[in-house]
Simulated scan of single mutants.
Amino acid sequence: MIFREQHMRQAVEQGPEAQAAALKKSEREAGAVTGFSSAIAAYGFFFIPAMFAATAVTSALWLFIGFYATCLAVCWWFYARKGAEAPS
């Protein structure tokens, strides 16, 4: 469900039945996104200590900084920049 649709589409629907259907769909999608995000976040509790155990602390911190910088760049590219594909 999360990866099936690339972006939220703004559909102009009228009437209480269409609004109820849209609300039910958004609740289902929100639950799926929350569950997926939580599962990915749980891996952090495993990988962060493993990185500190496997490499030097300085190297692990630079890897984390690089990862977070990449995440920030991806979020900016798709959501925050002017002319983004799915602005928020």
Rank of each mutant, 00 (worst) to 15 (best):
29 E>I: 15
87 P>F: 01
58 T>Q: 12
45 F>I: 00
21 A>W: 00
25 K>N: 14
53 A>C: 08
23 L>T: 15
70 T>Y: 14
37 S>K: 06
37 S>P: 00
16 P>C: 03
8 M>Q: 10
46 F>V: 14
5 E>G: 13
15 G>T: 07
8 M>I: 15
28 R>E: 08
33 V>I: 12
62 W>F: 13
54 A>L: 12
81 R>L: 03
29 E>D: 12
4 R>D: 08
59 S>H: 13
22 A>E: 09
84 A>R: 03
68 Y>V: 07
42 A>H: 00
80 A>N: 15
3 F>A: 09
15 G>N: 01
68 Y>S: 14
87 P>N: 04
12 V>N: 10
69 A>L: 08
39 A>H: 00
88 S>A: 14
18 A>G: 02
13 E>M: 10
16 P>R: 12
79 Y>N: 11
3 F>Y: 15
72 L>K: 06
60 A>P: 01
63 L>D: 01
18 A>F: 00
36 F>Q: 01
66 G>L: 01
82 K>W: 10
72 L>T: 13
68 Y>D: 12
7 H>I: 15
10 Q>V: 14
59 S>K: 15
2 I>K: 14
9 R>H: 09
51 M>K: 05
16 P>W: 07
62 W>S: 11
84 A>D: 02
56 A>F: 08
66 G>I: 00
62 W>T: 02
60 A>R: 01
